[in-house]
């Protein structure tokens, strides 16, 4: 488990990092916390000649909150997301979901940027970002641009990010309403067998806003637009919850792995979705 040789760079600003990316093209990769990248390098599943460490770039670290807009630098670690009280007040679901990622050691180094940029359908943050309708800010040779999280993912490990682009921040409106992130996993440190996030508001017993997303139930995170359409404006009862759950499961497309066959994953998807819905409603 020894990676092949690479050159290591530690630029102090984004311009430098981007210019290295431009210079080396697809032979270069940025490294954030390394907890997704290093394992694949060690298994030599990917051959990286130039490794660009983002940890020296202070401008893409930290959490900024202005009114209801939250902006998180790509190099903010998962443990920082968990410990930030302001963030917890504005968007408590971030802490709830982050605490279900891996284990404390991984969270001490793993970053939100690495988690969402990687394109691994098993990661929890991409699903969470669907839920929050987040916007990703990318910086590349052609300048800076915003991409909606809901439009970022194309397939497992494929995203709309260009080779020379670096994700610099993630922003979203502070959500309101009840929330829940439910994840079934085999053990601590495991990716989800199935996970679901829900944010919704109920006014006069009617659902006035809703967002639902799934993790590790397809080759990309799933935003459950069909289920959202079903629940919006409806009175919340068991019947509607069942319909919503079914619509979510319908949109899922899991693959079999050691966690179990497709049929099982779809069944458990239904369970975690129902649990997330129920808990979110309780919290409204």
């Amino acid at each position: 488990m020894i990676p092949s040789a690479f050159t290591f760079y530690k630029p102090e600003n984004i311009e430098k990092a981007v210019s290295l990316m431009v210079d080396f093209g697809d032979e270069a990769r940025v490294i954030a916390g390394g907890h997704s990248l290093i394992p694949v390098m060690k298994q030599r599943l990917t051959d990286i000649k130039h490794l660009i460490d983002l940890s020296g770039i202070n401008e893409i670290k930290g959490i900024e909150i202005t009114d209801n807009r939250i902006s998180i630098g790509a190099m903010t670690t998962q443990v920082e997301l968990i410990n930030n009280e302001e963030l917890f007040k504005k968007a408590p679901i971030i802490r709830e979901a982050s605490l279900q990622i891996a284990d404390p050691q991984v969270r001490n180094l793993g970053t939100i940027g690495g988690n969402v940029a990687n394109g691994d359908p098993a990661n929890d943050m991409p699903g969470l970002m669907q839920l929050l309708d987040a916007t990703y800010k990318l910086s590349g040779s052609k300048g800076v641009r915003d991409v909606k999280a809901r439009e970022f993912y194309e397939g497992a490990y494929f995203t709309v990010r260009e080779d020379d682009e670096i994700l610099i921040s993630i922003s979203f409106e502070a959500p309101s309403g009840g929330y829940a992130y439910e994840k079934q996993k085999r053990k601590i440190g495991d990716y989800a067998t199935a996970a679901a996030g829900v944010i919704l508001k109920v006014e006069n017993n009617m659902c006035s806003s809703a967002s639902i997303a799934l993790t590790n139930l397809s080759d990309t995170p799933v935003y459950c637009n069909k289920a959202v359409d079903i629940i919006l404006g409806k009175e919340i009862d068991n019947n509607i919850l069942t319909q919503v759950t079914e619509a979510c499961v319908e949109q899922s497309d899991p693959v079999a792995d050691q966690r179990g066959p497709v049929e099982f994953k779809k069944y458990v998807a239904g369970i975690v979705i129902k649990k997330a819905l129920t808990r979110a409603i309780e919290r409204t």
Partner: peptide
């Protein structure tokens, strides 16, 4: 007896 195999027991016994 991991999650999916236990689930399969229940399923095969008609408990779902």
């Amino acid at each position: 007896h991991d999650h999916w195999r236990v689930w399969k027991i229940a399923k095969d016994l008609g408990l779902h």
